[in-house]
Design a protein around this nucleic acid. Sequence first.
RNA 1: GGACCCGUAGCUCAGCUGGAUAGAGCGCUGCCCUCCGAAGGCAGAGGUCGAAGGUUCGAAUCCUUUCGGGUCCGCCA
Length: 594
Amino acid sequence: MSHDPTVAYDIFAVLRAEVVTCLRRLLPDLADDAFARVLVEPPRDASHGDMATNGAMVVAKLAKMPPPKLAAELAAALAALPMVAEAAPAGPGFVNIRLKEEFLLGQVPLLLRAGEAYGDSTAGGQVRVNVEYVSANPTGPMHVGHCRGAVVGDALANLLHKAGYAVTKEYYINDAGAQVRALAYAAYWRYLQAIGTSLTEDEYSAQVPGGLQYRGEYLIPVGEALKAEHGDALAPGGQPVFTEATLALIQAQTVAAMMVEIREDLAALGVVHDVFISELELVKAGVTDKAIAELVAKGLVYEGVLEPPKGKTPEDWEPRPQTLFSSTAFGDDVDRPLRKSDGSNTYFANDIGNHADKIARGMQQLVQVWGADHGGYVKRMQAATKALSNGSVPLDVVLCQIVKVVKDGEPVRMSKRAGSYITLRDLIDEVGRDAVRFTMLTRKSDAQMEFDLTKVVEQSRENPVFYVQYAHARCRSVLRQADSALTADLDSAPLGSLQDPAELALIRRLTAWPRTVEAAAAAREPHRIAFYLGDLASDFHILWNRGREDATLRFIQAEQPESTRARLALVAATATVIRSGLAVMGVTPVEEMR
RNA sequence: GGACCCGUAGCUCAGCUGGAUAGAGCGCUGCCCUCCGAAGGCAGAGGUCGAAGGUUCGAAUCCUUUCGGGUCCGCCA
C-alpha cells in the first residue's frame, strides 16, 4: 500500500493493508473477500507488542492450513516490512507486531502537522448522510428529555463529518398535528387574557376541543405579541372565534415563537442545525401525498382491518377498515395505518413524506436519533424508507434511553420556569454546557443514565468531564511555562529521547485516535469518543504523575533542551488530540482549571 | 399476547461488530506527602459476563429457550 509519509494516517489501517498483501502473496488462490474479516488492533496486553492481527486465523480454514503454521509464515513476511521491528506468531494463531521505534515516534510530528484534523478519515467517501435529531414538538421550551438526543445527535453528526461523510444536521418540526392545534388554543387563551376577556380559564377550557392544554406561563409573551400585532381583531369583544383561519394564524405565529425559543435553547447547548423542515410545509407542498401515491403505485397500500393487539385490548377497540401500508413486506410486525378515522394523515404518513423528502434531496443514508419511547416506530419507518428508495437508502435509528436527573442522589423534578419538568435551560444554568454535553456522552445511548447535578461538576478523578479537561489544561500549562524558544516548531523536534514506557504508551494511544473515529462512526456510537478521551487523559495523567516520583521524567528539564522539546512535542500532540475529540463532542477545551 | 433495549466485580459502567489470562473508576485492604508537580500516587483482593442449550478452531459478543428490569403496542408525536 502506498501512502504519503508526510501526512498523518491511521497506522492500523496501513498495517492491515500490509497484512492483507502478505496473505495474498502467501495464498494466491484465495478470493478477495476471504480477507474481509482481517483485523489489526492494539493487543489486549501491551507486552504482546504494538499491534496484533487475527489474519492467519481468519483465512486458515479457506487456506486449509493450521492457523499457527500460517501465522508463522505471515509473521515472517511481516517482519520484513520496513516499519516492523518484530513479528511473531502467538497463541491460537495471532501475529503480534512490534513497530520500529522511529516509525512509532514518527507519527508525532505528522500528528502535529495535521493538528485537530488528525483523525479525519475518508472512510465516509463524502456519502451524503442526513442526521435528524431533537425534532421536539414546538409546543414549549426544551426539557431534559430532549437533551440527550440533542447531544447524541449533534456529536454523531460531528463524528460522521470527521469520518468523511457529507453530513446534514436536520430538525423536523412537528407543526401539523393535534398537539400544535392544542398549542394554538392555549396561545389563544393567553391572547384573550392580554386583550382582557370576561371568560374564566375554566369557561374557555370548556369551549376547547379536548380542553385547555399547555398552561405554562411561557405562552404569555405570545399572547402579548398577538395583541400588539392584531389588537382585539382576533377576538372581538374578548370573545373567541374558533375559525380555521384564526386558529391557523395563531398556530403559525405560536409555532414560530416556540421555534425561536427552541433554537435559542439549542444554541445555548451548542447545537445548530443546518436544515429545519416543516411537517406542515411538506404537506402543503404535496410532498407527503406524492410519497404515499408512490407507495400506492408500488401496490403497498390497501384498505384493511387490523387485528386488535393481543393481551391488552383497548377498551374502545372496534374493528374498522383503514388505509394501511404493507410494512410487513419489509420486516415490520403488522401493517401500519396511514389515515386516521377522520381522514387526516397519521403522524406516520406525514413522516413518510419527511423521509421521502430527504431521499428526494439526494440523501444516501439516513440517521434518526429518537427517544426510547419511539422504539416501536423503528421498523415501520425503516420499512417505509426501504420501499421509497427501493432499498438503496438505509435508515439507522439511534435510540436514547431515559435520563434521570438527580441531585445528591435525590430525584429532581420541578422547573423554575415551566412547572412540570426541568427545562434544558435549567440544566445548562446549573452545571454548564460542557458538563451537560460531555456527561450525556458517557454512556451508550441505549443504556439508561442517571445525571447527577452534583457529580458532574465535581473536581475529582471520578468525574470524566473534569478528568479530560484537566489533562488538556495540564498540557497547556506545560506549554505556557516552557521557554518559547523550546515550543517553536515542535513538529521538527528530535524524539529519540522518548523511551519511558509511559511515554510510549501515550504515543500508542494517540495513534489509535483515527481508528477510534472510524469505528465509532461506523457503529454510530459517539460515546466511544468520550471513553477514548478518558483513556487518553489517563495515560497522560499517569505520565504526569511519574514526574512526581522521578524528576527526570518531568516535561521541562532545564539542562536538557532536546529531551524537553521531545516531551513538549508529545504534550502538544496530546493536547491536539484531546481538542480534536472534544470538538467532536462539542465540548470546549479549557486552558486552565479554575 | 407481541416487538425493541438492557442484564458484566459490592456500586456506576466500558469491552473496538467472534479472538489471547474479561477491563476502568468508585468502594474495600495495605503502603506513600519536611521540600522540589498530592484538587493525589502505588500495590492488592474482588467475576460460573442473569440462567440453560446451540453454532465453531474460539462466544460477554451470534442463534434458540428462559428469568429479571425498562420502553412501547389503531386515529399522541
